[in-house]
Amino acid sequence: MQDRQTCGLRGEDGRRCGGALVDAPAPVCRAHAAVIGDWVAAEYGVTDVLPGACRACGSRLGVRYPSAWVCAACEWPVGDVLDDGLPPPRVDIVYYLRFGDRIKIGTTANPRQRLARLWHDELLAFERGDRLTEHRRHREFAASRLGRSEWFTASRDLEEHVRGLAAGVEDPWARYARWLGEAAALRG
């Protein structure tokens, strides 16, 4: 029977390690914890601050692998050069903003600039799409539309739609950054 105070893993020779345990969720010693940590870092990467802003999306958060860094937001490989002769990638999005008990459905290719100009309490979600998608949403939620504006009463159907878009997304801006990185990668 294994002593509960010693490492339960086996060495390369097949014998039980028996090293002193570290405070871990499994019975491992310091040496085996280090080996496991190195393996996890190599296999899944380590999230850290990038050496510089991502050239594709501007994020400062990255994932460090033994071979290279990638942007945590858009997965652009750090060091890969964007073609400086090309304009920044364009990603059209439909945005959903809350102001009081109203929700605005609009579209833009430059959400930071557009949303900075609009009074709103909260950014609810982004949806990838252009004016055609925006018009579909306007028709879909026409029953709660305020006049001919892009503002809608916060109806149950509209709020369910927004919840569906936001499901699993902690930050809509991170999703937008990922879309920018994907667009940059597709054009090379």
Rank of each mutant, 00 (worst) to 15 (best):
N110H: 14
A167R: 14
T133I: 10
A154H: 06
L82V: 08
A24I: 00
P87A: 12
W173K: 06
V22Q: 00
Q113T: 10
E140I: 00
E150S: 13
R10V: 12
V49P: 15
G188C: 08
G14Y: 07
G168M: 08
I36H: 01
A34H: 11
P87G: 07
A142P: 00
E140C: 01
A56E: 05
C7F: 02
L165S: 02
A154V: 08
I103Q: 03
P25A: 02
S59A: 15
Y176V: 06
T6N: 09
L132S: 12
V169D: 09
C17F: 02
V169Y: 01
L21T: 02
D38P: 00
A166Y: 07
R10F: 15
C71H: 09
R30N: 14
P25I: 01
W179S: 09
D92Q: 04
E12H: 09
G85L: 07
A154E: 10
G11W: 10
M1I: 13
R128M: 11
V162L: 07
F99N: 12
V40S: 07
L9T: 04
C7K: 04
R117C: 11
R90V: 05
W76L: 11
R16P: 05
V40F: 14
R16K: 07
T107A: 14
E12A: 15
D171N: 13
M1W: 11
C17Y: 02
L146E: 15
A24K: 00
P88K: 10
W39K: 09
A68R: 15
A72T: 04
R156Y: 00
W76A: 10
A125C: 09
E160Y: 01
R15C: 05
I103T: 04
D3C: 13
D130F: 01
Y176N: 04
A177G: 12
R16Q: 12
F141G: 01
P25Q: 00
M1S: 13
L158D: 03
L165G: 05
V78Y: 15
G11Y: 03
F152C: 01
R102T: 05
L123Y: 04
A20F: 00
D92S: 14
A125H: 09
R137M: 02
C17M: 03
P172Y: 10
P51T: 12
R102H: 10
E75M: 12
R136W: 03
L82K: 06
D80T: 14
D130V: 01
H120R: 14
G129H: 02
G14I: 10
L21G: 00
I36S: 06
D38A: 15
A116E: 07
A116T: 08
W76K: 11
C57R: 04
